[in-house]
Design a protein around this nucleic acid. Structure first.
Lengths: 334, 334
DNA sequence: AATGGTTATGACAACGTGAGACAATTGATA
DNA sequence: TATCAATTGTCTCACGTTGTCATAACCATT
C-alpha cells in the first residue's frame, strides 16, 4: 500500500509536506501542492485510517446497536437517518444487530471499545423501556428510554400523535371512534391512549371507554381484535364510525375482517392507524390514512446528539404527521 | 485509556509478558498469566484496534454496500446473514446505504479503502445486473451480477424457484395457472418465467401463453394487473384456477382486486407468490402461500465468500422453499 | 549589508501493539 | 557444581500519520 512516505519519495519532498497537502494546510506553496497532489492522484494513495486513529487518539466511529433490524422495516429508517447524518459529518457508523441484554449486546459494545468509538446509539424497534448496559461510551437511546432517565434519549411524541389523530377525526365529523390499541407494555400505546382521551375531552367527548387493548403481543392482538372485538362492535346497535388501529400491520387484518363482515372500508367505516409503513399503507385498498412515525428524523436527531460535543437534552420528543389516503374520507354530516 | 504498558506497571511485570498473555503465548507461567489477566479484567483494558490494525497491516473489516436498505425489508435479511457470519469469524462489518453508480457508492468504497477493508459485498434489493464499480478490494456481488461475469456472485436460483412452485401447483391438481410476472428487466422475473414454462413442459402442459408481464416498475405493475388483466381474465370463459404473483407485495392488491370481483381467495381461485415477506405474508387473509427467498442464507454465503482465502466460485445459486398457507388449498378434483 | 518578518519546508517524536533477538533468572536434575 | 529447560525481562524496530519545533528561503525595510 502506498504511504505518505512513498509519495514524499516520488515528489522528492519531505513526509511532512505531503502530510500538509493531504490535510489542506494552507502553508504550502501552490506549485509544491500541485506537484504532490498530482502524484497522490496518480498513485491512488488512500490515507490509512488506522494510523490516523492512533495518532489522533480518537476514531470517527459511532456504533449503532439495533434490536431486531430484521423484524420491523420501520427501524430501517432509524438506521438511514443516523447514517446520513454520520456520513455528512465525516463519521463512520458500525451497525450491530443485537438482542438487548444478551451476549450480542456486550460483544458489540466491546468491539466498539476496541475501535475507541466516540459514541453509540441504542435503538429499539418499538417505543419502550430498556435496561441500560454498562459502558463508558457516550450513549444515546433511540426509541427507548431507561428508568433512571439521565441518558440522552430520542423518542416519538406518541401522546401528541394520539392527540392529533383523534382531533383530526373529530374535526372531520366522526363521533364514535374505537381505538384498537396495542398492548400497554408498549410505552407508545399508553401515551397514545392518553392523547386519544385528551383530544376527546378538548372536544367535549368522553372517550375513555372507547379503547380496547389486548394484553398479549402484537400477533395475539390481531387475533383478539379480529375474532372477538370487531364482530361484536360492528354489529352492535351503535357501531363505531372510525377505527383507530395500533399499527398499520394491525390495520391489514382489520381490513380483511371488515370485508368478512360485509363492510366497506371508507364507506361503512373509516380506518386509521399509526406507522405509515411503506409500502404497505399505500398498497392497501383503500389506501390507509395513518400517522407517519418520524423514524428517519429520529435517527438523524439521535446521531446529531451522539456527535455533539456538549451534553444533549435528556429527552427529545419528535413529532409525526398525518398521511391522508382514502380510508378516512371527510364525513357526510349524519 | 489503559494500555498494555499500564497493565505491565500495575502487574509489576514487563510489557512483553503482558503482550504474551494477551496474544495467548503458551510460554507463560500459569500463575503469572492469571495475575496479569486479573488486572486486565479489573482495569477493563481493551486492546486498541487501530494499533493492532496498523501493526498487523490488516483490518478485520468487511464492507457491506446495500442499495435501498430502506425500501425492501427483504434486503435486511441479507444484512443479517452477512453480519452473523462476520461476527462469528471475529470480523467487523461496516454498512453503507448507497445508490449504485452514484457518489454515495464511490464514497463508501473510499471509506472502506481508508480502513483497509479486506473485502466488500455489493448487495441489491432485487436480482438484477449492475455495473461493477472500480475498486481494488475483493468484491462479492449479492443478489446482483455484472456482465463480465468474473466476480464472485451469490444469487437466488430464480429459475428453480419458478420451476418448483409451478410443479407443486400442478401436483395439487391446478391446470390453469396465470403468472402475473414482474418486469423482465428484473433478472429474477425472466428466470422464473423460464422455470414456469419448463415445469409445464415436464407435466405435458404448454404454459408459454399463461404469463402476463408489465414493462414498467413494480408500482405500475400492480395497477396494470389489478385494473386491466385481472378483471378480464377472471370473468372470461376459462378463468385461471391459480394466480402466481411476482412478489408478495403484488399479491396484496391482487387480494383486494379479487374481493372487488366477488371472488374468495383460496376457494374461487388460489393465489401464490414469491418472497415470503414478513410479516405481510402471514397477516394476509387467507395466509399467502409463497416461495421463500433465501435472503438470510444468501447473506451468510456472501460473507463466507468475502472472508474465504481462496477464490470463490463465480456464481453460487441458493435455493428457496415453499411456505404453505391457506391461499393454496389442495384442489378438489374437478 | 544587516535586520526583521513572513513563508515554506524539513527533522523528529509519539501514538499502542506485536514480534524478534537475546540476556537474565529461576528451579530442577545429573 | 555443572547443565538444562522454563520463564521472564530488556531492547529494538516497525506500522502510518501528524503535532511540535527548528531551519531555510525569500522579501521588504532600514
Amino acid at each position: 500500500m502506498t504511504t505518505q512516505r512513498d509519495i514524499a519519495r516520488l515528489a522528492k519532498t519531505s513526509l511532512k509536506t505531503v502530510s500538509r497537502v493531504i490535510n489542506r494546510d494552507p502553508l504550502v506553496n501552490e506549485a509544491t501542492r500541485k506537484r504532490i497532489q498530482d502524484i497522490i492522484d496518480q498513485t491512488g494513495y488512500v490515507p490509512n485510517e488506522a494510523a490516523r486513529m492512533m495518532r489522533s487518539q480518537s476514531s470517527d466511529i459511532v456504533g449503532f446497536l439495533s434490536e431486531d433490524v430484521a423484524t420491523t422495516s420501520s427501524s430501517i429508517d432509524l438506521v438511514r437517518g443516523a447514517q446520513d447524518v454520520a456520513h455528512a459529518m465525516g463519521k463512520q457508523m458500525m451497525l450491530f444487530n443485537i438482542r438487548r441484554g444478551e451476549a450480542s449486546e456486550t460483544e458489540a459494545l466491546a468491539q466498539l471499545a476496541r475501535f475507541r468509538a466516540s459514541a453509540c446509539i441504542l435503538a429499539t424497534s418499538f417505543h419502550r423501556e430498556v435496561p441500560l448496559p454498562r459502558t463508558d461510551m457516550k450513549t444515546v437511546l433511540l426509541n427507548c428510554y431507561d428508568a433512571a432517565g439521565d441518558t440522552a434519549t430520542v423518542l416519538p411524541d406518541d401522546r401528541q400523535l394520539g392527540y392529533d389523530l383523534t382531533t383530526e377525526l373529530l374535526r372531520r365529523g366522526y363521533r364514535r371512534p374505537l381505538f384498537l390499541n396495542l398492548a400497554p407494555k408498549l410505552a407508545g400505546a399508553r401515551l397514545r391512549a392518553e392523547g386519544f382521551i385528551a383530544a376527546g375531552q378538548a372536544a367535549g367527548l368522553n372517550l375513555a371507554d372507547r379503547i380496547r387493548t389486548a394484553s398479549a403481543g402484537p400477533d395475539r392482538d390481531h387475533t383478539y381484535f379480529v375474532d372477538d372485538i370487531l364482530p361484536a362492535e360492528m354489529t352492535g346497535s351503535e357501531p363505531p364510525d372510525v377505527l383507530i388501529c395500533g399499527q398499520d400491520l394491525m390495520a391489514l387484518p382489520v381490513y380483511f375482517a371488515l370485508v368478512r363482515l360485509g363492510l366497506a372500508v371508507g364507506r361503512d367505516v373509516a380506518v386509521t392507524s399509526f406507522d405509515n409503513l411503506q409500502p404497505l399503507a399505500k398498497l392497501m385498498q383503500p389506501g390507509l390514512t395513518t400517522m407517519d412515525l418520524p423514524y428517519y428524523d429520529m435517527g438523524r436527531i439521535a446521531m446529531q446528539q451522539a456527535l455533539s460535543e456538549h451534553d444533549s437534552p435528556i429527552r427529545q420528543l419528535v413529532q409525526g404527521q398525518l398521511v391522508e389516503r382514502a380510508s378516512l374520507p371527510l364525513r357526510q354530516s349524519a
